[in-house]
Design a protein around this nucleic acid. Structure first.
Lengths: 209, 209
DNA sequence: TAGATTGTTAATCGATTAACAATC
DNA sequence: TAGATTGTTAATCGATTAACAATC
């Protein structure tokens, strides 16, 4: 896999979607797929699919197409899902608990090692075996447990402060659900999930139709 | 507001972000903003901001800039947030409950009228005063309560079925959190929120740095 | 070999950025 | 009026699509 570091954001965002469709096909026993058939299923063009895959090297075979489980494995590796990733969740409220309860992430190598909160009523409890700790021990926990990713489920006004603390403790990536554009140094990966922006976009579309 | 129905998706997806920054400024007492200063705050170009706003008509004033609260109100109207929207949540599990507990949506006119589930242990309970109903009465509830939007928080394999039932009952928009690309007729608005795709993108970035 | 389908180059399309006249 | 900043047209850039030679 030759990873060209200038892969466009648009391509990167399609990778998980390819992965989802291909995993589904693999589960259903599909062995072989052409770019044309995949394009029909996914609602993309065959051209785009071939261009996308060729950003990472040629995974196909002329006259045949793509071998589904091989392609799956390639994309899994490209996405880094073949590696284990230790995760913590900051904020053990509704959303934090919902994410902790979702087991699908574990299947792809994301292991939730702990949750953190300021609320004394929550500290000490466990969700699906995942302990809720006092936010005070955040830094040492990150270092001691080789935590790579932090999920921010705190209220808006704590999000940047928590981000800064995690960054200082050497975290590699931040998945932010608070409604701010968290700021991180460029060697830390960041995804802002703005649910309200998705909702408002939907509202626009609904009123536009 | 002249609504050109061919506004590009890219522009539409920036509107909620403008709205967030402008609301924040309004709350902090900022009265006036130029495209240049807004571009600095948001990390966009001033040119793009002016182009975006001019898709919907001229909201600014030469030599002055934009009046924050006026612009806020315009975007609110463009997004349809000035209208009340009755919402139901399908699936009263962790994610459904987390969304029901979030009060921010109500503030923008989204009123959650009920939740639905198949689980007899959940039916009859209430979350923040929002009743959980048997999924069997879904159709009549939608009609009787003028429900415009359905939020899907069910497991993957129920999502399309539930979508179809809501569409048949005349729902106008679907906010789908299940990991499938739900299919709807073109007169129904749809937003698929694929949390795992966001996570995998983050995983890619983290491993790419 | 013939047919199918990729990998890749070229053409097109659309989105972003730059520039500047209009005007507050 | 002079300065500032928009609205809008033109230029650039990048992403998508089309085409086709390579090859399984």
């Amino acid at each position: 896999m030759q990873r060209d570091s200038r892969i466009s954001e648009a391509v990167i965002r399609r990778l998980p979607k390819y992965y989802r469709y291909l995993m589904d096909m693999e589960k259903n026993g599909v062995q072989r797929i052409s770019s044309r058939e995949l394009s029909n299923r996914m609602g993309l063009t065959a051209s785009q699919i071939r261009q996308d895959f060729n950003c990472f090297g040629g995974f196909g075979q002329q006259g045949y197409g793509y071998h589904v489980s091989d392609l799956c494995a390639e994309i899994r590796r490209i996405l880094g899902l073949d590696k284990q990733c230790n995760v913590i969740i900051i904020g053990a409220g509704n959303l934090g608990q919902a994410l902790a309860n979702y087991v699908g992430f574990e299947r792809e190598g994301f292991s939730i090692k702990g949750m953190f909160d300021v609320n004394p009523r929550l500290i000490g409890l466990a969700i699906r075996g995942i302990q809720i700790y006092d936010i005070d021990i955040l830094e040492e926990f990150i270092v001691d447990n080789d935590i790579k990713m932090g999920v921010i489920c705190t209220p808006k006004d704590h999000a940047q402060k928590v981000t800064d603390r995690m960054v200082k403790s050497g975290i590699k990536s931040i998945w932010n659900f608070a409604p701010i554009d968290a700021e991180v140094p460029e060697d830390v990966a960041l995804e802002n999930v703005h649910l309200s922006e998705s909702l408002y976009t939907l509202s626009y579309k609904m009123n536009d139709i």
